[in-house]
Design a protein around this nucleic acid. Structure first.
Lengths: 146, 146
DNA sequence: CCTTGCCTTGAAGTACACATGAAGGTTTAA
DNA sequence: TTAAACCTTCATGTGTACTTCAAGGCAAGG
């Protein structure tokens, strides 16, 4: 498939696909005799992988290092393991930050209900949760920003 | 406390704190008689909140909108809820992407062990996990990129 | 009095991750 | 054969989120 089709399939712009190839986030793409990119499913999968990691907040630079390690054939496993573990720690910390922020937003959402919209059922649900999370609520701060 | 102390306390640069104030991500900061910022714990909490949301991928623009709604006295809870839910969805997707990446990386780490370093215990742990995750492994793709 | 070290504002510079534009090549369709 | 609709590379532009710089003020120590 050509780059436009790949773009439509992945939701990544043609320019971004070219950029990813240039930055080695995806492998070198085969060309047709006239020089156009001919993109197969393996590339599509890689583009989707890049999208996922980017969406999760990984920088191009880190992502390239990660993929280099992933693709490496040589048996430099010691360094690879070290770098992968480092990367893993970064990602786990980010995930935990994200989870903390999600918890915060959920708390907020559940504890400021809209009088205009709340149905009986919603109110009951809120009250139930409120009862369950008293200790959590106790920790809630003065101004709502921790 | 002065801006430098606040910076050290939060890990956010002085310039960034000034920037956040200018962009209304944190409230206007009180000044000493000579005009220097005098930062209290309420501001510190807000800075930390901003840091967390930024780290979670919220843009300055969205964050400002969110905080404006938050601080508003009018009963605009309907909009607030909408904005919160929107942001929550974004963050949950990011978290799931990150988790997928973490799983991916853990899989990689566990299946290319270093002959030079593995202890008996580590090997047993890997084998155990391997046995537990057969179905997951079955789904592992050709090139490892989904 | 002068240096050190903090602070201020405002303007300008920087890094990242693309987006856009210029100049040109190929293929299909009227 | 001429236009449309793709494509290529290379260069330059853009938005975001700061960072850095310039010019200067205030307070303490030597």
């Amino acid at each position: 498939m050509n780059i436009k089709e790949a773009s439509e399939k992945t939701g990544v712009s043609s320019a971004a696909i070219r950029y990813y190839e240039k930055e080695s986030l995806i492998p070198a793409i085969d060309r047709t005799p006239v020089g156009n990119r001919d993109i197969d499913d393996r590339i599509i999968r890689r583009i989707r992988f890049v999208t996922q990691m980017r969406s999760a907040g990984m920088s191009i630079e880190n992502l390239r290092r990660y993929i280099e390690l992933f693709d490496a054939q040589e048996d430099n496993t010691k360094e690879q393991k070290a770098l992968l573990k480092e990367q893993l720690a970064v990602m786990e910390e980010k995930r935990d930050d994200l989870q903390a922020a999600i918890d915060h937003l959920n708390y907020k959402l559940n504890h400021f209900y809209d009088h205009m919209e709340s149905t009986e059922a919603e109110l009951r649900a809120l009250e139930k949760e409120h009862a369950e999370k008293v200790d959590h609520q106790e920790k809630a701060p003065d101004d709502g920003f921790y």
